[in-house]
Simulated scan of single mutants.
Amino acid sequence: MAAGWGGAVLLGLVVLAGSSVQRLAGVGFALVAGPALILLLGPGEGVTLSNCAAGAISAVGLATGWRQVRLARMLPLIGAAACTVPLGALVADRVPSPALLIGIGALVAAAALLVIRGVRAAGLRGVRGALAAGAASGFMNSAAGVGGPAVSLYAVNTGWSAREFVPNAQFYGVAVNLFSLAAKGAPHLAAPAWSAVAAGIMCGAGVGKALADRVAERRARAVVLGLALAGGLATLGKGLWEL
């Protein structure tokens, strides 16, 4: 990434975009901002910063929505994620950068396509579905920063409404990203970059809250998934180029 405040401003804008989406939809920070963060900072720091920022913006949203959290239904998701986060962290630490870029890009693109298609499966319902979704999400969140799609698919197959999904996804986002940061540590950024990230999170929280009352859910979802697919393919291309 470019040094100094110029690079920090670019980083802040990426975080702002991802935070706006996360505050609007409950998930989506990593799908929108993750590929750009990885291209700017590399796969290790990019994914870790994605975990950090996604957890922070989830906490901001949860501050006003915590009463809607369905704790009993979230515990299997969170418990399963806690078991697979260390494996994802191990993979991220051991896999060479080009291969990790290819893997992350492919995961982001595939996750976006699965959510676009609204995949339905009996195995993604009930406690068994929660355990499967949580295990997949924990691994993907720690290794690639994209834990949201597995939870989204679980919610679709369980029949959750958007109003139910957002606060529960924010609660899950706080938990799984704390697990991921505990496994890998915090990102190493200079002071200007941290300042830009913090500003991006706070501005994104405001933008996302304002958009929630003005943008139709279907349109917002289409934009998010389109950006995610493009970002995943760009990351995949960079990994292939570096081989």
Rank of each mutant, 00 (worst) to 15 (best):
P187E: 04
G147H: 01
A175V: 03
S180H: 02
S161C: 05
N177C: 08
Y172L: 10
A135W: 01
A190G: 09
Q170W: 02
S137D: 10
S137W: 02
R128K: 15
A205F: 04
A196Y: 00
A199W: 08
A205R: 12
F139I: 13
W194L: 14
A162N: 10
A144M: 12
G134N: 07
G138E: 06
M140R: 11
A155W: 02
A150I: 04
V176H: 01
A130I: 14
S142C: 14
A136V: 14
A143W: 03
N157D: 12
N157C: 14
N157K: 10
A186L: 15
P149M: 08
A198Q: 06
G200Y: 03
P192S: 09
V176E: 00
G204W: 13
N157W: 02
H188M: 11
A205E: 08
G173L: 04
M140L: 15
A150Q: 08
A205L: 11
A169K: 09
A175I: 00
N168F: 00
T158C: 07
A143P: 07
M202E: 05
A130K: 14
Q170Y: 02
A193M: 07
K184M: 04
G138S: 06
H188R: 14
G145E: 02
A150S: 14
V166D: 05
S142T: 06
L131K: 12
A130C: 12
H188G: 06
A175E: 00
L131D: 13
W194Y: 10
A130D: 07
A175L: 02
A136D: 03
A144F: 10
A205W: 07
E164G: 11
V127M: 15
R163Q: 15
G129C: 07
G129H: 05
S161K: 08
A182P: 05
A130M: 14
K184S: 06
I201K: 07
V176F: 00
T158H: 12
G148E: 05
V197L: 07
S152C: 07
A133C: 13
R163I: 11
G185A: 04
A186W: 11
A144I: 13
A191I: 06
F165D: 08
G126Q: 15
P187G: 12
A144L: 11
V156R: 11
N168G: 13
A132Y: 12
V174N: 06
P192A: 08
F179K: 02
A205C: 13
A193L: 01
A162T: 10
F165R: 09
W194M: 13
A198W: 01
N168S: 13
C203W: 11
M140D: 06
T158A: 14
A196Q: 03
F139D: 08
F139G: 12
A193F: 00
G148T: 07
A143V: 05
P187M: 03
F165A: 15
G126P: 15
V176Q: 05
F179T: 00
L178Y: 01
N141K: 12
R163T: 15
A198P: 03
G126L: 14
N168A: 10
P167K: 13
N177W: 01
F179A: 04
S161G: 12
S180D: 04
V197Y: 00
L189Q: 07
